[in-house]
Design a protein around this nucleic acid. Structure first.
Length: 303
DNA sequence: CTAGGGTTAG
């Protein structure tokens, strides 16, 4: 690829690097990186740089992404967003480390007076929310001039995950006032806020509003949230009726939510029946067995 | 060249 008269053009490189990102092929991505290091006009191109950052992030190598990011002579808003949303994705596995990196990114943005709006602002809110700091997410959120459905959804999730359902619902209620329409993903977080706070009535109302007020067809994820909401609150037979009346096929999350409720409330026999349905829908994952072992052990301790 | 989601281990 790197022979003097056979140089790759920029867009070819970008496309190949994005393929590496999607496949998670770090070794191929790294090899391409090494091969273009000494081709300066290509290596310093912001599109190629962004694709390299994205590739390292998606392949789970945040350190290399950051080293490269530091060396990029020109950065644009896409570079920042790849960096931040990459950190968020990594956060699932190495939360502490990347919260630190995330703070570094935030400090850099402040110092260089980059506007934390749009993609960058949303990515920051999302990052803080996922790293468990709803307050820092809220700080960025409040400072944003243009909030869209992504900003609101990320903030609602931040409060919901932090056990602050009231604040999540307050933020949600603000959306129409700024002309922002909630979508299916927003409702997943709204319903999940209600379910973790035991707000059954509130959850029902939002679930019904989805189709009545917002013209959104509830998906299996929303049914799963409702089963979780009812089940956690101990309304197990209501949850069973709810599943029986679903207009679409329940998936593993729906059965998993009901099985989770059996585990919380010590329902052994029902749990065994649900377990069969869950394994039928999703035989490969181990979640069902974990929940079932919880049911047996909690039933033992109830005796 | 870029975005967000539901169950889950004594």
């Amino acid at each position: 690829m790197c022979r003097s008269n056979l140089r790759p053009d920029k867009m070819t490189l970008v496309v190949i690097l994005l393929a590496c990102s999607r496949l998670g092929d770090l070794s191929l991505g790294t090899r391409i990186h090494e091969n273009i290091c000494d081709i300066h006009d290509i290596y310093s191109d912001v599109f190629v740089g962004n694709a390299l950052v994205d590739m390292y992030m998606k392949c789970g190598d945040a350190d290399s992404a950051r080293k490269l990011f530091d060396k990029m002579p020109v950065k644009n808003v896409v570079s920042w967003n790849s960096m931040i949303s990459g950190l968020v994705q990594q956060g699932q596995f190495k939360e502490a480390l990347h919260l630190e990196l995330g703070k570094w990114v935030h400090a850099y943005i402040d110092k260089n007076q980059i506007k934390a709006d749009g993609f960058v602002g949303n990515a920051l809110v999302d990052m803080y929310a996922k790293c468990g700091s709803a307050e820092q997410a809220f700080g960025v959120f409040q400072g944003m001039e243009c909030k869209d459905v992504f900003s609101y959804t990320a903030m609602i999730m931040g409060f919901a995950m932090n056990g602050e359902a009231e604040r999540a619902l307050d933020i949600f209620a603000e959306m129409p006032m700024v002309g922002s329409k909630p979508d299916e993903v927003t409702f997943v977080d709204v319903l999940s806020a209600c379910s973790h706070a035991g707000m059954v009535e509130e959850g029902w109302r939002h679930f019904e509003d989805m189709s009545k007020v917002y013209n959104l067809e509830p998906q299996t994820e929303h049914y799963g949230c409702m089963v979780d909401l009812l089940g956690r609150a101990g309304l197990i037979s209501e949850a069973e009726v709810f599943i029986a009346n679903m207009p679409i096929e329940p998936d593993a999350f729906v059965w998993g939510a009901l099985l989770g409720a059996c585990s919380i409330h010590g329902k052994v026999e029902l749990g065994e029946a649900i377990m069969k349905k869950l394994v039928a829908v999703e035989p490969v994952r181990d979640g069902a067995y974990i929940l079932m072992s919880n049911i047996y052990s909690s039933a033992k301790s109830l005796k």
